[in-house]
């Protein structure tokens, strides 16, 4: 077991966060409804901790990440980073907060400007935030390249000359060069090959130890998450349905959706291919028109009358679950 992270004050607090996108129709673009991408979620992350946000496509996990780094203003709710409400920050204070909050994107192929050399790409954040004098920028870039496992000779190359794994290292370097406190990792390994995924995950883990980083790790599967996270939050249709310590989630999942996710994961062991498992039916409902009551009831094998009527709240316990009939 790793040592429990510092429990005193959370570095990041997300309160009742909502993000709705308007659906517009007609020539005067009337708003006819809202896609409720994130619909009221609460969580916090302690310094040095890794919280994973897991869910299927369209559950709102990436939107949450983007709202946290202030790429998109939330519709409702607050993001409090190091005691400050992000929405209230302006000018120099906001710029400072932005250096502390960085993001690594999923697709290493489209997140680097193809017309810029790696050296310039990495120097850009330093120059934009005027963190070091111009004369020292080059040296700083050399250092960071070394840290993420590349060399200073890569500086004059263009992004297309790198493989997916190397590009993701550049993405990490670009986030890391500002010496952030928290990094939102938005599916950083999903686009990479298996053997390269392990390299990048190991790198992220080493960097966390070395620089006391805090991660919000967004993923659609539970594989990588088990290895990197301290706690896991499972999202479904804009809501958190379960939040607990990593071991707890894997050993005793309490929400039927979490269990279904675990069952759905193909196990690389042919001897287990005929194991008993629940295969969930149907698709994720449309987030513009989520089902009444518990959002999972349309696919839940255990749904009862109350699930169709009343939405369950996330419990306030250490192993939080939002279900009327949690599994034991």
């Amino acid at each position: 077991m790793r040592k429990p992270p510092d429990k005193q004050t959370p570095l990041l607090v997300v309160e009742k966060l909502k993000k709705y996108y308007p659906i517009k129709k007609g020539i005067i673009s009337r708003t006819v409804g809202h896609v409720k991408a994130v619909d009221g979620i609460d969580f916090h992350i302690y310094p040095g901790e890794t919280l994973a946000l897991v869910g299927e496509s369209g559950c709102g996990k990436s939107t949450t990440g983007r709202a946290i780094v202030h790429l998109e203003p939330p519709t409702e709710g607050r993001v409090i980073f190091a005691g400050q409400d992000m929405a209230a920050l302006q000018g120099a204070e906001l710029r400072k907060a932005r250096t502390d909050l960085q993001i690594i994107f999923q697709d290493p192929y489209s997140s680097l400007n193809p017309r810029k050399r790696i050296g310039d790409l990495l120097a850009e954040p330093l120059l934009a935030h005027k963190l070091v004098p111009k004369s020292e920028v080059s040296q700083k870039v050399d250092e960071i390249l070394e840290i993420v496992g590349l060399t200073k000779y890569h500086k004059s190359r263009y992004p297309h000359e790198f493989s997916g794994g190397q590009r993701q290292r550049i993405g990490i370097a670009r986030a890391l060069i500002l010496q952030p406190k928290l990094i939102v990792c938005d599916e950083p390994v999903s686009a990479l090959d298996v053997s390269i995924q392990a390299q990048v995950l190991n790198l992220l883990k080493d960097l966390q130890k070395e620089f006391q980083l805090t991660y919000l790790f967004i993923a659609h599967g539970l594989g990588a998450v088990k290895y990197i996270s301290d706690r896991i939050a499972i999202m479904y249709l804009g809501k958190i349905v379960e939040l607990a310590q990593t071991q707890e989630i894997f050993k005793s999942p309490r929400h039927p959706y979490t269990q279904a996710l675990l069952h759905a994961y193909p196990i690389p062991n042919p001897h287990l291919r005929n194991r008993e498992r629940i295969v969930m039916e149907g698709d994720v409902p449309n987030p513009a028109n989520p089902p009444k009551g518990c959002r999972f009831h349309t696919r839940c094998p255990f749904a009862k009358e109350i699930c169709r009527e009343q939405a369950p709240d996330l419990t306030k316990t250490a192993h939080a679950v939002a279900c009327h009939f949690p599994l034991v």
């Binding site: 077991m1 790793r2 298996v194 053997s195 995924q197 392990a198 995950l201 190991n202 883990k205 539970l222 594989g223 990588a224 088990k226 290895y227 071991q247 894997f250 675990l262 994961y265 196990i267 690389p268 062991n269």
Partner: peptide, 12 residues
């Protein structure tokens, strides 16, 4: 290099 779900793995 695949993170196994059924193993207890906190190591590298």
């Amino acid at each position: 290099s695949i993170p196994h779900l059924e193993h207890d793995s906190q190591q590298k």
